[in-house]
Amino acid sequence: MFDNQQVMDLPKHSEIQLNPLADKALLHVQLNWLAFYIPFCAVLFAVCYFNEAFANKAQTYLLIGVPILILLSMLYNALSIKLQGFALRNHDIAFKKGVIWQQITILPLARVQHMEIHQGPIERKLKLASLKLFSAGGVSADLQISGLTHEQCKNIRQFVQNYRQDDTPAQVELANE
């Protein structure tokens, strides 16, 4: 039976000081959603324009409902970005996310199989990037952090690539950048 619950003083993941995402992360998310809402509204407009019966029935509801929906999603995005945070420790990387279901995932650097840095067109414009870290056996990336600056992503990649399990260097300055 496992009986050494209090023998050692473990580093506690619940005490990690998380760093917020980049300043433009919220703008990136809002623009992404806008890229969805513009065609969505265009389709609704086209349906109302060509189908008078539908327009008569739904126009009022749509005119009230769609702006509320957009507003709610913008508020949700703001909250979601505010609740996200990441931290790089000597031996692992942590990422917190989620509004309703809050998750904190910690991935030991020794288990990283490969990494990817993604930059979409909006991200390129805002000088942001997404970082994906893969370990063995996961369905997709174990850790996906969007809304970092491209520079941060490259630094993290470099840090992970240089990582050796037997080293214990004080390389945490990166997390504070």
Binding site: Q103, I104, P108, R111, D142
Partner: peptide, 14 residues
């Protein structure tokens, strides 16, 4: 042998 660890909680769970 664990690859990563995660905790999940909702407001009511917390």
């Amino acid at each position: 042998k664990a690859q990563s660890a995660r905790s999940i909680s909702t407001y009511f769970m917390r």
